[in-house]
Amino acid sequence: MDATIVQAVLSGALIGMIYALIAAGLSLIFGLMEIVNFAHGEFLMLAMFSSFWMWELWRLDPLASLPITAALMFGVGVLTNRLLVMRVLNAPALAQIFATFGLGLFLRASAQYLWTADFRAIQDPFLSRVAGGRIALGRDVFIGVPQLVAAVIAAVAFALLGLLIRRTRLGLALQAVAEDRSTAALMGIPAGRMFDLGWGIAAACVGIAGAVLASFYYIYPSVGVTFALLAYIIVALGGFGSITGALIAGIMVGLVEIVAPLLLGIPPAYKYALVFTLYLLVVLVRPQGLFGRY
């Protein structure tokens, strides 16, 4: 096969893994509470800034600070649930939407106020120094080490998330609450704590994604917007509430974004039009998304 296509497929799959991990958190929250977190992109932004500041202040590599970032974001998720989401849980859908949408605006504006609108980037993180920052596969195919490691970390996070939800008592409890909140409560499962946990895990996922992105992406207050838009598409494409769906749809979006313009000879300026076309086609045929339950 043509080296260009091989390169495109590899790059697409790698970036798709990261999109998928960002989308996973979104999907998890929806599956659990039927609430869409419109501040998801801002969670990503917070995670990236957390990595940035730990590097800036203590020279901690984003890879080393990843567990701290994930833990911090877990806390942010729990706090968001306690202070905001629980208050609108029984409110009309519009109120729920605007609560998280407003939180997103608040976080983005606060970030600009606190840290200015400057573009930041972590200079020469550990991963970009390993093997010169890239691995050559054949003469014309390269993989960036940060992207590769990011994709591997995303894959591990997915595997752990899958195990947690399917194979542990905690996961079963989460599923039970998602299925039927009041019956689960009758069975002695504390729904409130499960919601805390769901938000915490979802935010930790996006925290991990932000930490790995920080190794090779620029960081600024509105950085989450583009990624969040892709995440909404991925969740809708994969099916609301489905973690497997998010994984597959994420990789699909990554591939379509990079491979399709190449194969079809379309200027990359229209790559998101192709992604949206894919989304429209899937939603027309399967309105619930690829793996959706509804």
Binding site: V36, L105, A228
Partner: peptide
């Protein structure tokens, strides 16, 4: 609580807002 109606409402809201976000680019900051 988990009626189809609320899901549909959410979806409509989601798509509308996704569109707003898309159109707004990075809008929204004060």
């Amino acid at each position: 609580m988990s009626g189809k109606l609320s899901v549909i409402k959410q979806l409509i809201g989601l798509l509308t807002l996704a569109l707003i976000v898309a159109l707004a680019g990075c809008g929204g900051a004060p």
